[in-house]
Nucleic acid binder design. Sequence first.
DNA 1: TAGGATAAGTCAGCGTTGTTGACATTCCAA
DNA 2: TTGGAATGTCAACAACGCTGACTTATCCTA
Lengths: 165, 165
Amino acid sequence: MSDGTGRGQNLLFLTDEQLRQGSEAMFFAYRGFTADPDRILADLSYGRAHHRAIHFIHRSEGTTVNNLLAILGVTKQSLNRVLRTLIDDGLVESKVGTKDKRERHLFLTEKGAKLEQELSSSQRQRMRKAFRDAGPEAVHGFRQVLESMMDDDLRSLYKSIKDFE
Amino acid sequence: MSDGTGRGQNLLFLTDEQLRQGSEAMFFAYRGFTADPDRILADLSYGRAHHRAIHFIHRSEGTTVNNLLAILGVTKQSLNRVLRTLIDDGLVESKVGTKDKRERHLFLTEKGAKLEQELSSSQRQRMRKAFRDAGPEAVHGFRQVLESMMDDDLRSLYKSIKDFE
DNA sequence: TAGGATAAGTCAGCGTTGTTGACATTCCAA
DNA sequence: TTGGAATGTCAACAACGCTGACTTATCCTA
């Protein structure tokens, strides 16, 4: 795993203070990251769980409940509650699988797609500003560190859906 | 704010796909970020709120309740519930202010400091690995992007406590 | 010194979102 | 045809946000 530059980055000395600042940066930044969608969701008496479900149904149209469970990392009971309200409210459609009829394939309705747009565009706006302010090299580093911070199984999941399109 | 390189980084074109990948990286990385402390906390029937309180009391020993409220961004009722259990369990000590007797100054007990160490060291371990794997330039970019992503008031707060020591 | 402001704590109630456990239904595949 | 997988549902519970109302103690200022 040597980087071959001779700068010894694998031996990089990191103080507890530097690492603590990294943790706090994550904490405060995540607050900002979720702030804009949270405001929109509050008016609809939805929460982040609804947002996450909507996001991943949009990005993987027709995904199954089981697949969604793996991505979101929650119990089926927890997801089911969220999914049921979204279906009842006419934002998500659940279609029985054709090949395997046990499976349910999830889709956003027009109404659901509209909310997804609203949520993601508010979040993208902040992300775009942050990316532009920090510059391309910083963005590259940002993504490198985040990837390294993931659990192994989540990283493979992330990478597998990252280049889906 | 021109970077002077002539590459026009302020006009950086960012596709929705790139921004979405940034969002998803934040989502999956934050899961990893909290995973290790979460496991420790679960055994003690504590949650993330307890961790956050312990963290910021440790880093700003003797802080007041009001100050902690501002940092954590929750209501006084919500913090009070967490603080009460921590005090009852002998992890946190609350001392009446000497200058202003209305204030309560918060300290970790020996027991509290021990748990703090356990929590922060598990989180630091992951952060250290991520920082080393990604390298110093990446770490710099990581922090730049996270800072840009914060709300203005949280960024000033973050910066003000960042260089406290 | 009286009265308003501030810091903290408390009670009651509610909502979202996570958990476990138990159980029914449907359907595919060996 | 039977076992297991996928799904859905019910109940109960816990963590942790929230609002609103209220008390107590203290401080500061007019």
